[in-house]
Design a protein around this nucleic acid. Structure first.
Lengths: 153, 153
DNA sequence: GTTCACCTTCAACCCACGTTGAAGTCAAGG
DNA sequence: CCTTGACTTCAACGTGGGTTGAAGGTGAAC
């Protein structure tokens, strides 16, 4: 069992489509692998890179950011330097996202109890409300600009 | 002061681009307004609709969902019916998003303290970790599939 | 009459992250 | 020889929420 995989085997191991792996390579997130009669062959280093990429993506990094992280390894600089900087830069975005999502959640909970027959009179949809009274409105949703976090499906 | 606005005035009132308003109309999120020599004129009803749309978007609804909400008003059904259903349907997505974002935050916080010189040995990037030990790894990020919540900038 | 600000339409473009399709290559097995 | 299956390339498409640009209309002011 010499650890050399075709693109199909590698893709299967990570639950990816082969097109995704080619896409990563085309965008220099993964290096060009060795080839046997035109076909890509991957070693354990590629497996680890995909492992790192997988976790990095789930941690909220874009492919561009993941490329920076992975290429810092190739540049010989200690990994924690790039990692710390990327993480510190991403943290405020994620924290803003959390705040925003919690405001959404609070609003949606209130909305499930709404009894208004017309949206015209529903205080849930009033903007710029005075923060004096019971605060049912949209003022908590006023959080502006959540930065570059994808968090998508 | 008869409350009739041009598209530019309406856009300014909401901090929107006029193209956005035309886009909403083209996608039937807003109805076609009255016209004066070809140009759109908007009344207070349109202002309220944009207000509702604005809050709905910030609450996490897509334009499609906002259209459903706004058109239920035209259909004569009580507003709370559509609102409750939409909100109840969106809530799990938002709660998943919160969980996911909090997992990201925890990982990023750990990452800012990482001292690994190589990503190959960094436990932060190990997947499928045994939940036995100190749990520094990526297992909390394993939350799969966050549904249709945008939350973008 | 021309300049100005504002409006109109329609099609094309943007972003990230890939997917899909057409057309072709290659090695192994029957 | 022929089929099968996995691989190759490249270009085009899809998403959501709009933006941008070209080309033109309209009314009022100067």
């Amino acid at each position: 069992m010499n650890e050399t995989l075709t693109i199909g085997q590698l893709a299967q191991r990570f639950g990816l489509n082969t097109s995704a792996i080619r896409y990563y390579e085309a965008n220099r997130v993964l290096p060009e692998p060795r080839r046997v009669s035109g076909q890509r062959r991957y070693g354990p280093d590629a497996v680890r890179r995909l492992e790192v990429l997988d976790v990095a993506k789930r941690a909220g990094f874009s492919l561009d950011e993941a490329r920076v992280l992975l290429q810092s390894a190739d540049a010989g600089t200690p990994a924690f330097e790039a990692l710390r900087e990327l993480a510190a830069h991403k943290l405020p975005d994620v924290e803003a996202l959390i705040e925003r999502a919690q405001a959404m959640r609070a609003w949606l909970l209130t909305a499930t109890d709404c009894s208004c027959t017309s949206l015209d009179v529903c205080a849930l949809f009033d903007r710029d409300e005075e923060p004096a009274n019971g605060s049912d409105g949209a003022e908590r949703l006023r959080i502006t600009h959540v930065g570059g976090v994808a968090a998508g499906a």
